[in-house]
C-alpha cells in the first residue's frame, strides 16, 4: 500500500485530508458517525472574538453542482470555543487540530489567535481573511496584499504556532496577495474560500438568500480552485493547502499535482457526512491506479 502521509508546516499528517472549516463543526457531530481520528486533521468552525449569530435565514441556496451559503460566521466566540467546544473536541479527536479564525479588525484577529495559541491541541492557526458573508471584515482583509500582510504580521506576533492564511478567490491577483502574506511571515496558504455568488427565485423575484449574496462552493468550483492553487503554489515557497469543490480521491490527487501539500474538503461533507472517511479509504486504490507510491512525491508535480 502506498504512503499517504504528508508534512504540513512541520507537523506530519497521516494523510492529506482535512475537512474544511464551517462544514465540520467542532468535530463531535461527525464523531458520532465514524472515528474522526482517521482524518489528517480538521479545521474547526470559524471562530471570532465575540459570539455571532450570523446572517438571517434563508442562508442556503442550491446551484448546479454546488451550493451557496451565507451563514456569516455563526460561532459562540473564542472564550466559549475554548471552554465548551475544545473539551468536547478533545474527547473524540486525539491529533493536532486546525483552528480557523476570523475577525473584523487587525486587533480582533490578534486577540483570537493569542487566545487559541495557548491551546495545546491547536496545531495550526488558519486565518480566514476571505469570508464573503460578513460586512466590514473577513474578505476585505483578503482583497488587498497590504491588508492581508498586516493581518499576517499581527497574528505572527502573538503565536509560535504555524500560521496559514486562507485566501479568497474573489480578487484580481491572488498571487500578489499570497506573496505578500509569505513576505509578512505566513507559514502556509490555504485556498480557495468560496466564490461570491447569487441566486434569484423566479416566483418571488427576490434573492434566494436573505443576505442576497453568498459563498459558492461545491464541485462546480473545482477547476477554479485547481487553477488558483497551481498559480499560488508555483509563486510561493511555503506549503499550500488546496480546497474548493474536492469530492473524490481523484480530485485530491489532482489538487496535489497542482501544488497542494494537503487538501481540505468542504461542501462534500454536507451532502455525504462520510465523504472524508470514504475518500481516505479510496486513496490507495486511486494511487495504485496512477502508479503513486508516496503521495508526498506528487506535490506540485505539474510544472
Amino acid at each position: 500500500m502506498g504512503k499517504l502521509d504528508v508534512t504540513l508546516c512541520g507537523i506530519t499528517l497521516d494523510n492529506p485530508i482535512i475537512p474544511a472549516s464551517g462544514t465540520f463543526g467542532f468535530g463531535y457531530e461527525f464523531a458520532e458517525l465514524y472515528d474522526i481520528n482517521c482524518l489528517g486533521t480538521f479545521s474547526f468552525k470559524g471562530t471570532t472574538k465575540d459570539a455571532r449569530f450570523g446572517n438571517p435565514t434563508p442562508r442556503i441556496a442550491e446551484c448546479t453542482a454546488g451550493m451557496i451559503n451565507a451563514v456569516g460566521l455563526q460561532n459562540p466566540g473564542v472564550e466559549r470555543v475554548i471552554s465548551e467546544e475544545l473539551p468536547k473536541l478533545k474527547k473524540c479527536f486525539n491529533k493536532p487540530v486546525m483552528a480557523n479564525i476570523s475577525g473584523f479588525s487587525v486587533e480582533d484577529y490578534a486577540y483570537t489567535c493569542e487566545k487559541l495559541d495557548k491551546e495545546d491541541q491547536v496545531g495550526w492557526l488558519e486565518v480566514n481573511v476571505s469570508c464573503p458573508n460578513v460586512h466590514g471584515g473577513g474578505m476585505s482583509f483578503g482583497t488587498s496584499p497590504e491588508a492581508a500582510a498586516e493581518v499576517t504580521r499581527a497574528v505572527k506576533a502573538v503565536t509560535t504556532k504555524p500560521v496559514i492564511i486562507k485566501l479568497s478567490p474573489n480578487v484580481t491577483d491572488i498571487v500578489a496577495i499570497a506573496k505578500a502574506c509569505e513576505e509578512a511571515g505566513a507559514d502556509g496558504i490555504s485556498l480557495i474560500n468560496t466564490m461570491l455568488g447569487m441566486r434569484i427565485d423566479l416566483k418571488t423575484r427576490k434573492p434566494v438568500i436573505a443576505n442576497k449574496m453568498g459563498g459558492f462552493s461545491g464541485s462546480a468550483i473545482f477547476p477554479v480552485a485547481v487553477r488558483m492553487v497551481y498559480q499560488v503554489a508555483h509563486a510561493v515557497k511555503i506549503p499550500v493547502i488546496g480546497m474548493g469543490g474536492v469530492s473524490s480521491a481523484e480530485d485530491v490527487i489532482e489538487m496535489m499535482l497542482a501544488g497542494a501539500t494537503a487538501v481540505e474538503i468542504g461542501a462534500a461533507n454536507l451532502i455525504d457526512p462520510f465523504a472524508c472517511r470514504d475518500i481516505i479509504n479510496d486513496l490507495p486504490r486511486v494511487m495504485a491506479k496512477y502508479n503513486i507510491d508516496n503521495l508526498s512525491d506528487i506535490i506540485g508535480g505539474v510544472k
Binding site: 462544514t23 457531530e29 435565514t57 434563508p58 442562508r59 442556503i60 451550493m67 451559503n69 454536507l270 457526512p273
Partner: peptide, 27 residues
C-alpha cells in the same frame, strides 16, 4: 421548516434564535 444545507447539524445553514439560545432547525 427552513432551507437546509446538510440536515444533520454541521453547516449552521438553518439556525434560528430561541428563548434558550441559538438552535439549528435540523438538529
Amino acid at each position: 421548516e427552513e432551507r437546509m444545507g446538510c440536515g444533520f447539524g454541521a453547516c449552521m445553514g438553518c439556525s434560528c434564535k430561541t428563548v434558550t439560545g441559538y438552535k439549528r432547525i435540523c438538529k
